[in-house]
């Protein structure tokens, strides 16, 4: 499949995303050998409840991303509400309060594009359910840099527009149902 071993995973989700991530993330083992960075759109004032919610259900360590924080394998980093999350060339995380992109802050495109620069072919990008088009340009950047592009099957997704937009921008992306995505990500630990 992917000739370059994956070094990081980025995930973007919007409407229905909490449920979708609750299907995937708790199933992953604590010794997953790479970090996961997540942008999940939630209202800005519903602030920062995501990390505690997922931490209580996951074997992986789950935390809110901090500025200049180095990433570690086996840790899930959520973008804080009202900040963009980016990855620097050395793999450290960065936050910004630049203007919203695709009406979103955090924006999936901002995370995916910077992570594609940082990890190149070593990145897996995954676009899940959502009712907008954020993440489409980002997923294309992941594929253009040689990374693996994955999209939740729009026909079974809670909201179709975001995975559909991602597929239009990045037709080479692999389409998978949530259970299939879960299996695939679990397999990364058993290479």
């Amino acid at each position: 499949m992917n000739p370059v071993p994956a070094r990081a995973i980025v995930i973007g989700a919007s409407a229905g995303g909490v449920q979708a991530l609750l299907t995937i993330l708790p199933a992953l083992p604590a010794d997953l050998p790479l970090p996961i960075m997540v942008v999940l759109h939630v209202p800005a004032d519903r602030s920062n409840v995501l990390a505690p919610l997922f931490a209580s259900k996951c074997a992986l360590i789950v935390k809110e991303a901090e500025d200049k924080e180095p990433t570690r394998p086996g840790v899930v980093y959520f973008a804080p509400s009202d900040y963009h999350l980016l990855v620097e060339a050395d793999g450290a995380l960065a936050l910004s309060s630049d203007e919203p992109v695709n009406y979103s802050r955090p924006s999936i495109d901002v995370l995916f594009e910077s992570a594609a620069d940082a990890y190149g072919a070593g990145l897996i990008g995954l676009v899940l359910t959502g009712a907008n088009a954020d993440g489409a340009a980002g997923l294309k950047a992941v594929a253009d840099a040689g990374g693996l592009a994955l999209v939740e099957d729009p026909t079974s997704a809670y909201a179709r527009p975001m995975p559909e937009a991602a597929l239009r921008a990045c037709p080479a992306a692999q389409v998978m149902s949530l259970p299939r995505i879960e299996e695939f990500l679990k397999g990364l630990g058993q290479a």
């Binding site: 980016l86 990855v87 620097e88 060339a89 960065a94 910004s96 630049d98 901002v110 910077s114």
Partner: peptide, 9 residues
């Protein structure tokens, strides 16, 4: 300046 943001800008 942190490079990832300056690049976007």
């Amino acid at each position: 300046y942190a490079r990832a943001s300056i690049k976007r800008r």
